[in-house]
Design a protein around this nucleic acid. Structure first.
Lengths: 198, 198
DNA sequence: CCCTCAGGTTAACGACCGCTAACGTCGCTG
DNA sequence: CAGCGACGTTAGCGGTCGTTAACCTGAGGG
């Protein structure tokens, strides 16, 4: 098994490039030849690593959803006992890290879900739902004024806010990662707080 | 020219159904036969109304961007003289109306832009940029603590928040249009305010 | 009454795409 | 060094897609 510091395996290269291309041009807009070319092999060579094009998308989306949920659970466990407001900050921080570091995946996450086989789609949706539920719980502890449906809507909306990173400066034109992260964090908290004000 | 109260023309039917299908399955994921079937004609009959599939997408995206910009300019003119904070409320209200009433278009707006011919894409981007600039100006008047880049990022992020409506309750499970609109409005203001707090 | 034309129809073409088949070439290992 | 498995290659098949061609029909007007 490859450790995390090894050079990326061919499989990992393929997944990374496929994510970028799918995000740029859409799942149906990218051919297997392009994905192959992006990693220096061509076309059908991909089938030594994946059973098909669908499988690459499936692995990407399941991976994203799983990572988000796992990370959130870890943060929840680590912050056990601290006030809910701190836990919420940790969740926001984790989501922002992800949105800033893996923009193509964030894009895919809510865009290409319907291109999956039924079983994979159900799995991804289940992971997503658990992630949302976890947020809803923490948000309601932090802002008790929120009803459950309102909290759910608020969480989805804040995800929209945090996931807007692909639309911020196309290149490195945005004012530094730390500054952007802090701004997003403040805005997310402000949005939740405003949602909690009756 | 058809007045606004006439029965929808065939062209309008086609655009509406194409928008829905493109939003559901992506531009490349929808065939012309499906679009035709959705309006009761089949396949190549569409070419009596549009020169090609691309033209439908182009007309949709240019239309959206133009409507958003025109609406915002009208609201700005109508609110001339009132405090900037009120103008911002009006902009937010307009954007929310659009996001709630035309969800498929909102989805397309930031998803299929790259599928356009160069000239159309440039036009759409120019309209979008003007819309953003208009918001940035009003936001900075309302919250003078914001630098220009921060205001721009904040505006994009709030668009992400407001455009999250397609992810809220798939059917009529969300708690009434008015309630949702009010929640989104509060959250948007809260996010801007938090962005403005240094 | 015929002509026109808007708005359809079906058939078919060429391009492309996902995938398979058949084959080649290393590097390792008994 | 023989054999083998991992990892490529190119050729090509079958299906789909956007688009065009050719044809049909019904309403309106001189």
């Amino acid at each position: 098994m490859a450790s995390r510091t090894d050079a990326p395996t061919r499989r990992e290269q393929i997944l990374k490039e496929a994510a970028r291309l799918f995000a740029e041009r859409g799942f149906h807009g990218v051919g297997v030849d392009e994905i192959g070319a992006a990693v220096g092999i061509s076309g059908p060579g991909l089938y030594r690593h994946f059973p098909g094009k669908d499988a690459m998308l499936a692995e990407l989306l399941v991976g994203i959803s799983g990572q988000l949920l796992t990370g959130a659970r870890r943060r929840l466990a680590e912050a056990d006992g601290t006030p809910a407001s701190r836990v919420l900050d940790s969740l926001i921080e984790g989501h922002i890290d992800f949105a800033l570091d893996d923009r193509p995946l964030i894009t895919l996450h809510d865009r290409e879900l319907d291109r999956l086989r039924d079983s994979d789609r159900k799995l991804v949706r289940q992971l997503q739902r658990q992630y949302v539920e976890l947020w809803v719980q923490v948000v309601r502890e932090t802002y008790p004024g929120l009803t459950e449906p309102a909290a759910r809507s608020a969480v989805h909306s804040v995800f929209g806010l945090l996931n807007s990173t692909p639309h911020l400066g196309r290149a490195g034109t945005l004012p530094g990662r730390g500054t952007t992260a802090a701004l997003l964090h403040r805005m997310a908290r402000g949005a939740f707080e405003a949602a909690g004000r009756e």
